[in-house]
């Protein structure tokens, strides 16, 4: 039987493996720990919002994601964790076709948002990104007013015909993002004049203004201080009542705090996906254990 580890050596070459993980010569703790043939834990749910099967991503000839299959449940918060370069951001970006912007990037597999095939050539990507919104690592408000930042999406998608409707969308979105009280008196001041944490909440308000079904977050708090981080985390749990959320984070504590299920990626494979509590108290796979406890990184 060809193990996933051997497969990996064929693809990457033994020298490309990170130190202390699976390199046999080193005799390290995980030397006898091949990648599981299948993801361990509970990667699937009964009623998935997003159903992702055998996802593979290539940058030219380099394979970045190897056969990842998982579900994201409705109103669920899923966090993706793993060492740098493990493919978690690449995977997240497949979910609203952000990878389309990279020419050399090819995505294979079956990716569905409910019954919609995400990679259907007839699908309007702009439409898709209204249904699956994204918040990035660095807050990136448009160089416009706070109001226009939030109103931008609803305007281009034609969600509001009258000024009154637009005002209401802006207020609701800012309220949901927990920013309304702080900015209601200066809606026409530039968005870039807000603090980092406020800017990030503005970006979240902008994302939810178009009523997406899924919100993807790529390390949304890594540029924020602990107070701003706590606000965003609080927001995530509130937002999960209306939206489905997938979040990539480098902070394991954050994954532990905000998510229902946690997926651990390693060298482009999904090693384990389990209830967050299980992952952080009794992970099933040795690689997860080693990463969670900081035995390699």
């Amino acid at each position: 039987m060809e193990t996933a580890q051997q497969l990996d050596k064929n693809v990457l070459g033994a020298n490309d493996l990170p130190k202390g993980t699976v390199n046999e010569e080193q005799g390290s703790m995980t030397q006898d720990t091949p990648y599981p043939k299948e993801t361990v834990g509970r990667p699937f749910v009964d009623d998935p919002k997003m159903r992702l099967r055998d996802v593979e991503v290539f940058y030219d000839d380099n394979q970045a994601i190897h056969g990842v299959s998982l579900d994201i449940g409705k109103n669920e918060v899923v966090s993706l964790i793993g060492p740098s370069g493990c493919g978690k951001s690449t995977f997240l970006r497949c979910l609203n076709r952000m990878n389309d912007t990279i020419d050399i990037c090819k995505v294979k597999g079956s990716l569905h948002l409910e019954s919609q095939d995400l990679y259907d050539p007839k699908l309007d990507v702009v439409e898709l990104r209204a249904r699956v919104g994204m918040v990035f690592q660095k807050p990136n408000p448009f160089p416009k007013s706070i109001y226009d930042n939030v109103a931008y999406g609803p305007r281009i998608h034609g969600l509001a015909n009258k000024k009154y409707d637009l005002d209401e969308i802006v207020e609701t979105s800012l309220r949901k993002a927990g920013l309304w009280e702080e900015v209601k008196d200066r809606l026409h001041a530039p968005g870039t004049g807000l603090s980092g944490g406020q800017q990030q909440r503005l970006c979240i308000a902008r994302t939810i203004a178009v009523s997406p079904e899924v919100v993807l977050m790529d390390e949304p708090c890594s540029a924020l201080d602990p107070i701003a981080t706590a606000k965003i985390e609080e927001l995530i749990s509130e937002l999960s009542e209306s939206y489905t959320i997938a979040i990539v984070t480098h902070s394991m504590q954050q994954a532990a705090r905000v998510s229902h299920r946690t997926a651990y990626f390693h060298l482009g494979r999904l090693v384990e996906m389990n209830d967050t509590e299980t992952v952080f108290t009794k992970p099933e796979h040795d690689l997860t254990e080693a990463y969670i406890t900081g035995r390699f990184g």
């Binding site: 952080f280 108290t281 997860t288 406890t293």
Partner: peptide, 9 residues
Amino acid sequence: RQPAASDLR
């Protein structure tokens, strides 16, 4: 250290 998994246990 906010230990997790086996360290926490």
